[in-house]
Design a protein around this nucleic acid. Sequence first.
RNA 1: GGCCCGUUCGUCUAGUGGCCUAGGACACCGCCCUCUCAAGGCGGAGAUCAGCGGUUCGAAUCCGCUACGGGCUACCA
Length: 493
Amino acid sequence: MPVRDRYAPSPTGALHLGGARTVLFNYLFARKMRGQFVLRIEDTDQKRYDPESLASILEGIRWLGLQWDEGPEVGGPYAPYFQSERLSLYQAAAQRLVEAGHAYYCFCTPKRLEALRKEQERAHLPTRYDGHCRNLDPSELKQRLAAGEPGVVRMRIPDGKTVVDDLLRGRLEFDNSTLDDQVLLKSDGFPTYHLAATVDDHEMAMTHVIRGEEWLPSTPKHVLLYQMLGWDPPTFVHLPLVLGPDRAKLSKRHGAASLLEYREMGYLPEAMNNFLAFLGWSPGTGEELFDLDGLVRAFELEKVQSSPAVFDQAKLDSVNAEHIRRLAPGELSRRLRPFVPDEIGDDLLAQATPLVQTRITKLAEAADLVRFFVERPYDYPEGLVSKGSDAAEAAAVLEEARAVFAAGEPGPGLEAALRQVAEKHGWKAGDLFMALRVAIIGSRQSLPLLESSSILGQDEVLARLDAAIATVAGSTGAAASQKPAIAEDEASP
RNA sequence: GGCCCGUUCGUCUAGUGGCCUAGGACACCGCCCUCUCAAGGCGGAGAUCAGCGGUUCGAAUCCGCUACGGGCUACCA
């Protein structure tokens, strides 16, 4: 029997990291086992349904490259894949359960249920349905049904114990007395999660249900449902929760709410997959860097951890940086494109990319690093004049350096010539390079000076040096001109 | 309150009775390299394996209890 698993989101909010991790594990397992990965939309809550979140969930999964084999947009042999289009299936199942005595109609009003709950809370009792409608008189029931009185269908939890077999946690035994008579069919005719998921997982021939640990407490109800309907249950796998730094379940208040926000920040999908995979799983080999195919090859469901994992942004950053460094320069350029200003053309970006590659953690950081290619410095940070020197000397030094650039020395010769200039004036080479960096790039931290200058082009470099020389000279009073206030400050010790 | 799950460096983890004086990665610190920033190389600090009690010749590994953390407790999923 081929493996079939699924991710079954409810379109009521964005795809979070925890959800993305669940998608990933389902995908990896299905691919590893050469089975099918199904996407099913659990839109059974009409009040909370949000079409935008549906679109963003699909987009997020696609961004990660975790294409589903069956589901929305691609269809499949078990269509439709939206639960709202499968209502008759759930209603028929509910009907069967009622007829077999495994479920019953309940006409309790929300008001009564709320009062009941309040009372139980006050008495420090477990909050559970009290079975008020469990044994309605058959003729009365017929009457109320005929009268169209609104009601729900509830599961009749039998006495005894229910065993849940979880792939990661082993055999778990639940006392049925702690289980609630769960609502299966709501008064609007829609099923609750418990009924819909059970019916669909069976109808869609799921062999594995891989979901978050928050579902573990309701799994005995699902097992019971399988028994009542005479179906074989799938293998249950409850993944450990993904926690925020405060050790509570990851949520919006821990930062980025949506997976797609990570795309905007410049994380690579392959890095997200790599990072997410290691949240609760490890190949045990010490290898840490994987692309999607590598993950598929190495993945083993049995090796998934059963204790929760704390999301660590610093680790994500490091994984992302690592993946950025592994990209071929051409590919990196393509990825960088949306993050870099349009004024920087494709050719320029391609030239700058190798310089940027080891200096960014996220794609979005590239923008600040390459901006100087199209923006002349309008302000000089400290550094034009080296320590222990003065403006007049600095101007002279820069002037000589300018001559070196003007002579158009080729690569290695250029650097050597500049070092000679520094030496002649008793400057440390580093101070000269810093002065040039400030003059040409406008920052004390930058891409490598000489490579950047060569990309910038001789004319542009000379123009920038002239402007810097004028500023330095101006601050001595030798050349009266408008100069940035900041340069004046630096010139005076 | 009830039910359930979990507990190895700050974080992700390796580890399935002796190979562990507990290994790796990230983060952190130092050194080297170096035109800045990175990258890279080398090194360092960091875990009495939650605690206690058992089982055993021997326990991070098996069992029990306690503590702590978390999840669930809707006509939400």
